[in-house]
């Protein structure tokens, strides 16, 4: 009985909210560190290498599945708690003065959390899903000038020094060149593998260009400003959610004592301000950069 109470009881549900919430705070730090690379000049190759690592490394895979599970559990548990809490007061007060004794963030965690969830969904559609499933995900290219006046676009291979001229490479679904033109020597298969067409031998691997996807997204002529503003707004919502959530997690786990609680509260508020601001700077920088 005691064991199942850890899932079903009021206090048990709070432990899970706290544990998944704190794990997601760790995730935020990792994600932020990755994103901040976008602010570095000439970060294209580094960022795409990082994106490749994050989508293929087995240890990262385990962490990412833990993150998906945490987000789902945090959301489902949160919704269950919010429904129960609504039911606990069937008749409300005619006059209520909640700001006299509690903060805005603490009273609106469910609404803030739902908004963050909507943001996560759109964010995953815009970036994560493209990286994982989009067959038309662009591959990283670079403009190189091997000799004066011979500037052209090259695909960047994963091995150092490998470059493949763009017009030599046939992309999946691309038509054969018109009659009279020489057939292409190379072909992209399985998303990023580069094959020699005649020998059907793999000659190299390319990078998915998440860097380009990101820059194009926030610099989009028509919608880039709206995407940027939505991102910044979502970070503001996240800031409020963390403002209460961080220290609340420690209280739920029973970690409250006169010495540590003021430090935890301060750290939580610092986290709630710094992390979302750093996240928000990135799309602002991209949108307004040349």
């Amino acid at each position: 009985m005691a064991k199942s109470a850890l899932l079903k009881s009021s206090i048990g549900k709070k432990y899970w909210m706290a544990l998944t919430g704190l794990f997601l705070c760790l995730f935020l730090v990792g994600h932020l560190a990755g994103n901040l690379q976008l602010l570095m000049p000439n970060s294209q190759l580094q960022f795409n290498q990082y994106a490749l690592f994050m989508t293929t490394n087995p240890a990262v895979k385990i962490l990412s599945y833990l993150t998906y599970i945490s987000i789902l559990f945090h959301a489902v548990d949160g919704i269950l708690l919010a429904i129960q809490n609504k039911k606990a007061r069937p008749v409300g007060y005619a006059k209520s003065n909640p700001s006299a004794n509690s903060s805005f963030a603490s009273r609106n965690m469910a609404v803030l959390g739902t908004l963050v969830l909507v943001f996560i969904a759109t964010h995953m559609i815009n970036f994560w899903a493209k990286m994982h499933f989009d067959e038309k995900m662009p591959l990283m290219t670079q403009t190189i000038e091997p000799a004066p006046g011979m500037k052209s676009e090259y695909y960047v291979g994963r091995a150092v020094g490998q470059y493949y001229q763009v017009d030599q490479v046939k992309l999946p679904g691309e038509k054969e060149p018109e009659a009279g033109l020489p057939p292409k020597q190379l072909e992209v298969k399985n998303g990023t593998d580069l094959y020699n067409v005649q020998a059907n031998v793999k000659v190299g691997e390319l990078y998915k260009d998440l860097h380009k996807i990101t820059f194009d997204f926030f610099k989009d002529k028509k919608y880039g400003l709206y995407f940027t503003l939505f991102y910044v707004f979502s970070m503001l919502v996240l800031a409020f959610h963390l403002w209460h959530g961080f220290q609340s997690a420690f209280q739920s786990l029973g970690l409250n004592n006169p010495k540590w609680t003021p430090i935890i509260k301060f750290a939580g508020k610092a986290f709630a301000v710094i992390v979302p601001i750093l996240f928000a700077i990135i799309p602002l920088y991209i949108h307004f950069s040349k």
């Binding site: 809490n85 909640p98 004794n101 903060s103 220290q247 609340s248 209280q251 739920s252 786990l253 409250n256």
Partner: peptide, 30 residues
Amino acid sequence: GNCTNTGACEIECPKGISLENIARMNREYL
């Protein structure tokens, strides 16, 4: 309902019962 740590109870309690007691209960329950 469930506690969401808003802290309103501690402020309105006529006897000034501290939120530390909720944390202690959470520890005891665990």
